[in-house]
Design a protein around this nucleic acid. Structure first.
Length: 423
RNA sequence: GGUGAGGUGGAUGAGUGGCUGAAAUCAGUAGUUUGCUAAACUGCCGUACGGGUUAAACUGUACCGCGGGUUCGAAUCCCGCCCUCACCGCCA
């Protein structure tokens, strides 16, 4: 959520930035300022009336103590008038605040200056590529065939148990999955990220604070009986650790990592794009999250990018880093870098991580602040990224490392997996 | 799920209708003193939204788990909900 103050003081610049995203309703900015003006006017009137009531009430107390009943009654009548006024002002204020809030949450974050203009994924910029695309042998197969042959993942039984898109990892597949989780967490904690295992369901307040509500309601599984949402990413519960908190400036940066399953309804997706492990309703992901001083958030972003990049290098996967264009960025992001690995048998790039700086967009809703050296409250900045999302790593690992003898496990993973080859 | 106790500022904890935005202690912070460490003393020390100011000072309102209600006036009384703790029930 953007700060009204920013809209007010930098109106034209805000509209310019929104245009980079192809945001179609710049007039909302003016509407918000107008609503905020109205809110202020009502607040001032309310404060005045309430102040009259307060002082009259004190006087009534004194008059009663002195035994001046008539005087007290006269004042009570006066208070009654102000009370009606306060009641109607309160109603107007509630209404205006509600409209203000509803409008404010419709504005996406402002793209950073580095974000390229553009509408579709084709407009994303490739920042750099790394690793070597493997040359596969003649009989190489896409992962959905490999997992069947080697009994790594059983989609049919997963579908029987739950529904399509809920994979059942089996045997060596389950073991590979587990070793990846362990490896990623070790890698992240070694870099100073504090480890959590969060709740996998969150309440409405948490889903709202990180921006899943109201925008992405339909994306989440909803346990209506208790009004809990299954998390679409560990970002939601972990970032909410710092909801409504005032942190010490000296505690920044806060670095956190967490493993969690992620649940996404992905309504309306189907076809080749989502075949096999490419897109599923439940997947595993290890997330990294930072809450930092606003002056340092871009340094933190660079650190996170490097962190993820080195992890991909250690897995010996060919990868590329994209800077997303305005039109392809998430609602809450100021800048996003996507990491894709090349899946050799599918001959396509698969997104395995997305690292974003939210600046103060998320922390404003979250209300995570610190008091600076001058004693002023400031919003922290928040960032997050995947390090890493598993299914597509799984898919590209087995596709890229397949040989006639079996699937080679990269050296970094062997201590975790306990073998050098799957066959 | 049942019964009981409770939810007050960073922490502990006082406060049962007006003198309480809230005692006291601790922590924090600025300073004074002391030869260092330590200690002692003094000041400051909640958040939000307004007004005011170059910035402050100053000032209005709201907030004592959340939402309602009673009252001229509510942290304090009433109702609903949420959460925590204890015991019981169930259970990985």
């Amino acid at each position: 959520m953007l700060q009204v103050n920013v809209l007010r003081t930098k109106t034209d610049w805000v509209k310019e930035r929104l245009a980079i995203r192809n945001f179609k309703q710049p007039e909302l900015v003016d509407a918000i300022i107008a609503l905020d003006d109205e809110r202020k006017k009502l607040q001032a009137a309310f404060d005045l009336s309430q102040s009259k009531i307060n002082s009259a009430s004190k006087d009534i107390g004194k008059l009663m103590a002195q035994g001046d009943k008539a005087g007290a009654e006269a004042l009570k009548a006066e208070v009654a008038v102000n009370k009606t006024e306060v009641a109607s002002l309160t109603a107007s204020m509630t209404e205006v605040e509600k409209r203000l809030q509803e409008t404010l949450v419709q504005l996406p974050n402002l793209p950073n200056e580095q974000v390229p203009a553009g509408k579709t994924p084709e407009d994303n910029e490739v920042v750099r590529e790394g690793g070597v695309k493997p040359t596969l042998y003649a009989g190489a197969k896409p992962h959905w065939d490999l997992i069947k042959e080697l009994k790594l993942v059983d989609f049919e039984t997963g579908a029987k148990i739950t529904g399509s898109g809920f994979p059942l990892y089996t045997g060596k597949g389950a073991r590979l999955q587990r070793s990846l989780i362990q490896y990623f967490l070790d890698y992240n904690t070694a870099a100073g990220y504090y480890e959590y295992i969060p709740p996998f369901m969150v309440n409405e307040a948490s889903a709202y604070a990180t921006g899943q509500l109201p925008d992405k309601e339909g994306q989440m599984y909803h346990a209506t009986e208790d009004n809990f949402y299954l998390i679409p990413t560990a970002e939601v519960p972990v970032t909410n650790i710092y909801r409504d908190t005032i942190v010490k400036e000296s505690d920044l940066p806060i670095r956190m990592t967490a493993y969690s399953p992620c649940f996404r309804r992905e309504a309306g997706s189907f076809g080749k794009e989502v075949r096999g492990l490419n897109r599923v309703h439940q997947f595993e992901k290890i997330e990294i999250i930072q809450i930092v001083h606003p002056d340092n958030s871009y340094q933190a972003l660079d650190d996170m990018i490097l962190h993820v990049e080195k992890l991909l290098q250690s897995l010996e996967l060919p990868y590329r880093i994209l800077r997303l264009c305005g039109g392809d960025m998430g609602f809450t992001s100021a800048i996003t870098y996507d990491f894709e690995v090349y899946s050799a048998a599918q001959e396509r790039w698969l997104e395995v991580s997305s690292v974003s700086n939210f600046e103060s967009f998320q922390t404003n809703r979250l209300k995570c602040r610190f008091k600076d050296a001058d004693g002023k409250m400031q919003l922290t900045h928040s960032l997050n990224g995947s390090s890493l999302a598993l299914p597509r790593i799984f898919a590209s690992l087995i596709e890229n490392n397949q040989t006639e003898a079996g699937i080679n496990i990269p050296a970094a993973l062997q201590p975790y997996f306990g073998a050098a080859i799957i066959n």
